[in-house]
Structure formats: structure tokens, C-alpha cells
Amino acid sequence: MSATNVRLPSVLTPLPRPRSVLFAPGNRADLVAKLPRSGPDAVVIDLEDAIPAAPEAKAAARPVARDAARDLIVAAPHLSVFVRVNALHSPYFEDDLGVLTPELAGVVIPKLESAQDAEQVAAALQARGLNLPLLAGLETGAGVWNAREIMAHPAVAWAYFGAEDYTTDLGGARTPGGLEVLYARSQVALAARLCGVPALDIVVTALHDEAVFREDAGLGRALGYSGKLCIHPAQVALAHDIFGATPAQLARAEALLAAAHEAAARGHGAFSFEGQMVDEPMLAAARAVLAQRPESTQPEHP
């Protein structure tokens, strides 16, 4: 089956640019029920890393995760709910698919390594009558190397970079400065930009260190990531602060685009704003700022 055979309608991508995606273990219904409290843009019920890699533990988690996902969707219909299954080539993947339902916002697939992997996952979902978009995990050397072709697959709607698994795969070690993953982190962000896919940045394992999170998230935003994977509720507000637009930024973007609209109406192609000559990259940046405004429609400006 070619990579063009599995296509998903655009209505299946309700979460264009998440700022935060909060995880909870699939075997902890109590923690899943609490996920909406911190106000994340999306949540993931995890059957992979959060569950011990043992057949009996994986099997026990599946019915808990399925019921918890169903209850959460009913209790918080505004929230985008995902399930992360185990990797395609793991012994748990096929059975994990039984947890998925059409009401989910999508399915998180860890450790994708090629477009063929994405195609195989999409075909497996369709065989079960599920047209769920994929949040692709790029967290191995092969996954990073093939990031562009993976994200170009029509079933992939979002992606994330997993630094911990990537470093392990390469036989390296994580350091506080993160220099060992900077190349791969940048490659995933670049591939995401070229494919028009929002990319989510690496987790911060220092759960109670706000300064560390802010510094790491600031670098992720500077590299071009649209949001952050969060593994503690306290990280959600920090991610929104770093990856969301401030009221001042929104107001300035609105004013700039309004000035551009007025200049165009007068027949002026070039104009100045706040002492700067305006060009198309500035206008594109302003539109990108307004696109971060939650539950809003971008105004009709050029």
C-alpha cells in the first residue's frame, strides 16, 4: 500500500497547535479523571512508558485505559483526548488498538521510524474502522533521520521529539545543557515546518523546577516547536506562558495587520509601523501570533 492510499479528512484534526499535552498512566483511572483540572490543550492516556513492559501489566492496563478515556470524553467534551499505544513493532501494539475508539482526538504512536511505519499504522487503524489521525513520536535515530518523510504522510497530524529514547538509541547520555540532542531536536522542528505539522517539544523530567522548565521550553519555542509535552499538571500553565501569545503580543499583531489593511486600501504596498518598514515576513509573524489565540478566528487582514 502506498503512502497516498490512507488519507484523513481535515475534520479529524481538531487541535491544530497545542501548547500543552499532558500525560497520565493508562492504569490510573484516578489520575486520568484529574487531567482537565490544569487546563491542558490535550491529554494523553499512556499505555507505553507509563506501564511496565510486561505482558500482564500491559493487559491489565488496557480495560482501565479504555474506560477512563470514555469517561473523560463524556466529562470533558471540550478536551482533546489521545491514547498512546506501544510502538508498532512491539508485541503489545495490536492488542493496544482494542482500546481505541472513534471519539478520540487521535492516537499517539511512539518510535515511528519511516513513512512505511506510518502507513502500516494507518492501515491497521482503518482495518478496525478507525480514521484517527496520528501524533507521531520521533525518538530514535532512524525516526529523526526520516522525520520529513514520516511527517509528510497524510495520516500524521502532529509530531513530537522524544529526547530520552533518542539518546538511549544512540548510546549517548542526557546532560543538563541538552547539547547532545540539539541537532535532532532542530531537525524534527525543521521537518515539521516543511511539512506543515505542529511539533511538540521534549519532556522536562525536573517536575518541580520551574526555572529548568522555562529555560528548556524557551529553547524549544526558539527552535520552532508549537508546544510542550507535559508530565506534571504544574507544567501546563508554564507551557501556555511560553508557547502562547501574551495580550500585548496579540494587541500588537492586531494593530500591525490593521495598519497593513489600511495601507493596502490606500494603494500603498509599503508602509511603516512603530518606526519600522513592514515587509511580508513581519505580516506572516503577526498572523502566526494571532493563530495562537484559543478559540478565535483570524481577522480578515492581508
Rank of each mutant, 00 (worst) to 15 (best):
Q298K: 00
A163P: 04
C195E: 15
V108W: 14
E274H: 07
A53G: 02
L138D: 08
L182R: 15
A142Q: 15
H208D: 14
Q126I: 03
L112Q: 09
F93I: 03
K58G: 05
V74H: 10
A123R: 14
W158M: 06
V212N: 04
V107Y: 11
I150T: 07
A24M: 12
Y225H: 15
A255F: 04
A199L: 06
L31H: 08
F82S: 01
I202Y: 00
V83L: 13
Y225C: 08
G172T: 02
A191I: 03
K111M: 14
A291M: 09
D241Q: 15
D71V: 07
W158C: 01
A29N: 02
A59N: 04
D279K: 00
D67L: 14
F213N: 00
G106C: 11
I109P: 02
A157H: 10
A189D: 09
S38L: 07
F82M: 12
N146T: 01
Y183G: 04
V85E: 05
P176R: 10
I109V: 15
D209I: 09
V43W: 11
A264Q: 14
G275Y: 12
V156P: 06
A157D: 05
T205N: 14
V278G: 00
A50Y: 14
E56H: 14
A24F: 10
R62G: 07
L229D: 00
L132A: 06
V44D: 06
I242L: 02
F273L: 02
T246S: 15
D241G: 00
L223V: 11
R37T: 04
F23Q: 03
Q116T: 13
D169W: 13
A288C: 06
L290W: 10
L257G: 04
G172P: 01
A189C: 09
P233W: 10
A163G: 15
P302T: 01
V21R: 12
S272H: 11
K228S: 11
V107E: 11
L8M: 08
A217N: 03
F23L: 10
A60Y: 12
N86K: 12
E56P: 03
A122C: 10
